[in-house]
Structure formats: structure tokens, C-alpha cells
């Protein structure tokens, strides 16, 4: 492996796992009509990234800490006020974005907003692989409970689903996925990593099994394709990952029109 191939290999490894995990997680978020929550939450990470840069610790940890705090506060406010989840998250989003832009040093702002997957070290890649694997396993475990709670909370309760806990774990996993995805495409575009694969998969799926699997696959493929295209052209990878995802979505719209959703 030559000197340039190695970072690309790490980037591809981190990208494919982060893409798989965000795609799979996104399938739950799109099904729950919370597609934009990932997008909004991603901005909450910005002040954490800024603190990491300013105080010289791993920005991922800062992002994750802020996301966790936001998720905890969201969960608590939603349960205690019964405000819609998106309204609560919306309040945090604008506050965090304002704070993040003020705190982030100007030279680093672009990287924080659009990601730096091209500069992934082996440790970052290993962390991304480990965390993404745990996310996929976690999402798989809560999938039936989240789907059922969305279909009917009463039905979920009568089936002994612990709706409060399932929602908390779900939001926790959203935070983890967003923090991991930020490395790939940055805070501005991480929402796309969650929304696009699931939206495309939903167009061509008539069953949950196919929907979840295709969402994960589309997420992994768009991340890898974007990173490889970036490596070949020198264009930043974040926007390319999103463009590949958008292309998949458009293809799914055409496929749906021609064939309809498949089992």
C-alpha cells in the first residue's frame, strides 16, 4: 500500500461502517417521520466540536457529549411537557448552532461543518467500526419496539414494550450515529447520511426486513462511493457522499414509478 492509499483505505473502512449504521438508524427515523431530527441534532454537536478544538481534546468526544446532553434534555422535556419531539429538538438546534458558530475558531469552521473523512487515522477508523457495529446491534434490538410504539403507543404498552426506555435508547443511538457521521460528512450534511438511504429504500420496499437492509446497504454504498470519488477527483468527500445518496434516491423514485414497492 502506498502512502496515499492507506488513509483512503481507513476512510473507506470508517465510511462504510458509518454509512451502514446511519442508513439502518435512518430507516427507523424516516419510518417515525423524524427524518429531520438527525439533521437538526447534528448542529447540536457544533459547540462540542468547537470546545474540542479550543481545549485540544478529541472533537468527537465533545460532539458526543453535547449530543448526549441534548438527547437527555429532549427526552426529559418531551416526557414532562408532551411537546412534540421535533419542537423540543428545534429549540435546542437554534441555540446550539448560534453557540457553535460563535465558539468555533474560523479556520476550523469549514472542517466542522463539512467533515474531514480524508484525514482519518487508523484509530478513528477502528473507533468508527466498533461504534457503528454496536449501533447496528442496538438498532436491531429496539426496532420492533420503536415500530410498534410509533404505530400505536397503547398497543406497545399492552404488549409490555417499555416505551419510555425504548425511546431513550433510540435517541441515544441517534446521538451516536450523528456523532460518528459528522466525521464523514460534517455537521451540515450528516442529516443526509441518515435521511437519503432510508428515503430511497422506503420507495422500493414493502416489508420492514427489506426496508432496513436496503437502508443500511444504500448508506454504506453512498459513503464508500463518495469517498472513492473524492479520492479520484480531489473534491471534498462530504458533499460527494450526499450527491451519491441523492442519486440513489432519484433512482428509487423512478424504480417505484415503474415497478412499485417490492417485498
Amino acid at each position: 500500500m502506498d502512502q496515499t492509499a492507506e488513509p483512503v483505505a481507513y476512510a473507506v473502512l470508517a465510511g462504510v461502517f458509518a454509512g451502514l449504521a446511519s442508513g439502518y438508524m435512518g430507516s427507523l427515523m424516516v419510518a417515525k417521520r423524524m427524518a429531520l431530527v438527525g439533521d437538526v441534532l447534528s448542529h447540536v454537536a457544533l459547540p462540542g466540536i468547537a470546545l474540542g478544538i479550543l481545549l485540544d481534546f478529541n472533537p468527537f468526544l465533545g460532539a458526543f457529549a453535547f449530543l448526549l446532553a441534548a438527547v437527555g434534555a429532549t427526552w426529559y422535556i418531551e416526557r414532562s411537557t408532551r411537546l412534540p419531539l421535533d419542537a423540543v429538538i428545534g429549540v435546542m438546534f437554534v441555540f446550539a448552532l448560534a453557540l457553535g458558530v460563535l465558539l468555533t475558531p474560523a479556520p476550523d469552521l469549514l472542517e466542522a461543518l463539512f467533515g474531514d473523512i480524508a484525514n482519518v487515522a487508523w484509530l478513528d477508523a477502528a473507533i468508527a467500526v466498533g461504534i457503528s457495529t454496536l449501533v447496528v446491534l442496538g438498532v436491531r434490538a429496539i426496532y420492533p419496539g420503536v415500530v410498534l410504539s410509533h404505530i400505536s403507543e397503547e398497543l406497545a404498552v399492552s404488549a409490555k414494550v417499555r416505551v419510555g426506555w425504548v425511546t431513550f435508547i433510540y435517541l441515544f443511538l441517534v446521538a451516536v450515529v450523528v456523532a460518528t457521521g459528522i466525521k464523514v460528512v460534517g455537521t451540515l450534511l450528516v442529516g443526509a447520511l441518515v435521511i437519503l438511504p432510508a428515503a430511497a429504500a422506503k420507495n422500493v420496499s414493502a416489508s420492514l426486513a427489506r426496508y432496513g437492509a436496503l437502508s443500511a446497504a444504500f448508506g454504506g454504498v453512498s459513503a464508500v462511493a463518495g469517498i472513492l470519488l473524492s479520492s479520484a477527483t480531489g473534491v471534498p468527500p462530504g458533499p460527494l457522499v450526499v450527491l451519491v445518496g441523492t442519486g440513489m434516491f432519484l433512482a428509487s423514485v423512478v424504480t417505484k414509478r415503474i415497478m412499485g414497492p417490492r417485498g
Binding site: H150, I151, L155, L208, P261
Partner: peptide, 15 residues
Amino acid sequence: GYVPQNLFVADMPIT
């Protein structure tokens, strides 16, 4: 056992 009045499944791909 509980039978709800409505389910939010119109656009949920679930068999």
C-alpha cells in the same frame, strides 16, 4: 389484550 381504533401504518413498509 388491546385493540386500538387506528394504527399509523399508511406509509410504513410492514407486512
